[in-house]
Design a protein around this nucleic acid. Structure first.
Lengths: 131, 131
DNA sequence: TGGCGCATGTAATGTTATTACATCAATTGC
DNA sequence: GCAATTGATGTAATAACATTACATGCGCCA
C-alpha cells in the first residue's frame, strides 16, 4: 500500500514542483500549467492534496507554498518529522530530519498527553550566500 | 527599550486576544471590534504587527491565526524558540519552550551556515480530552 | 511654525483556499 | 449487460486572508 500511480493532473503538478528551483504557490503552479489545460485553482489543490498524502510534496506553512520532497527515494514509509530552513534572500529551501529533535518533541508532547498528527518546523532566515 | 505603552488600537486587539479562549483570525478580531470603531482589516493587521514585534502575541502559521502570548510576564527579552501544540478537536493551543530543542536546532542550522531569524514549531493533533 | 515621525482612516485590490454542483470513466455486483 | 458506486475531473462562484496606496490627524521639537 505505497504510492499509487499518479493521475495526469497529479503528474503535471509534481512535474512543475520538481522542475522548480524552490517552493511554488498553488496559483503559481496553476499559471505554469495553463498550457496543459489547467483552468481553476481546484485542479491544483486537489492534486496537491494527494501528493501531500503520498509524501511526495511538503507544504510550507509560513510561505503558503509547496515544495517537492527532497528525499531521493522511499516515499513508502513515513519519514517522521521534517524540518526546513527557508532563506528570505534567495528563497532556497533546505529540508532536513533529526532524530534527536523528533524524540525530544515526542517526549514533551507525550507529557501533555497530546497525540501528534502533523509537526511543522520551519526556520526563516538567511542562508550562507545571502547572510 | 522594552515594550512601549500600547496605542488605542493595539490595546483593543490585545484585549480581544486576551479574552478569547483560543486563537483568532485577523478577521474574527475585526468583527469583535466593530463596536469599538474598527472598520478595515488594516487596523487589525497594523496592531498585530506591533504586538508581534513586542512579543505579546504569536502568529500560528498553520492556522493563519493569532494568540496572546501565554508567558505571564517579561516580554522585555526574547524567549527564544516558541513551540505550540494545537488541538484539532477543541482548538486549544498550548505554548511551550524547550532549551534542548532550541540548542539542537541551533546546531543543525549552524552546520548549514544558516542565520536564523524566526523559528516556527507547530504540532497539530489532539489533546488529552479530544483524543 | 514648519517639518518630522508615527498612529490612524478608508478604499481598493491582491493572494490563498474552499464550497457547490456537474460530468466522465473505471469497477463492481447483480 | 447494466445499475450502483467510487474516484478523478471541470467550472463557477465565493470565502478567507493579507497588502498597497493614499489621505488625515496629532504630538514633538529644532
Amino acid at each position: 500500500m505505497g504510492t499509487p500511480e499518479l493521475t495526469k493532473n497529479q503528474s503535471l503538478v509534481m512535474g512543475a514542483l520538481t522542475h522548480a528551483e524552490g517552493p511554488m504557490s498553488a496559483y503559481t503552479i496553476l499559471d505554469k500549467l495553463r498550457d496543459h489545460g489547467f483552468r481553476a485553482p481546484l485542479q491544483v489543490y486537489r492534486a496537491l492534496d494527494k501528493l501531500l498524502e503520498y509524501g511526495l510534496v511538503h507544504r510550507l506553512e509560513s510561505l503558503n507554498a509547496f515544495v517537492a520532497c527532497s528525499c531521493p527515494h522511499d516515499h513508502e514509509h513515513d519519514h517522521g518529522v521534517t524540518a526546513f530552513t527557508i532563506c528570505e534572500g534567495c528563497g532556497q529551501v533546505t529540508e532536513f530530519h533529526d532524530e534527536a529533535i523528533e524524540q525530544r518533541l515526542s517526549a514533551l508532547v507525550r507529557a501533555q498527553s497530546f497525540k501528534t498528527e502533523k509537526t511543522t518546523i520551519e526556520i526563516r532566515g538567511h542562508c550562507k550566500s545571502c547572510a
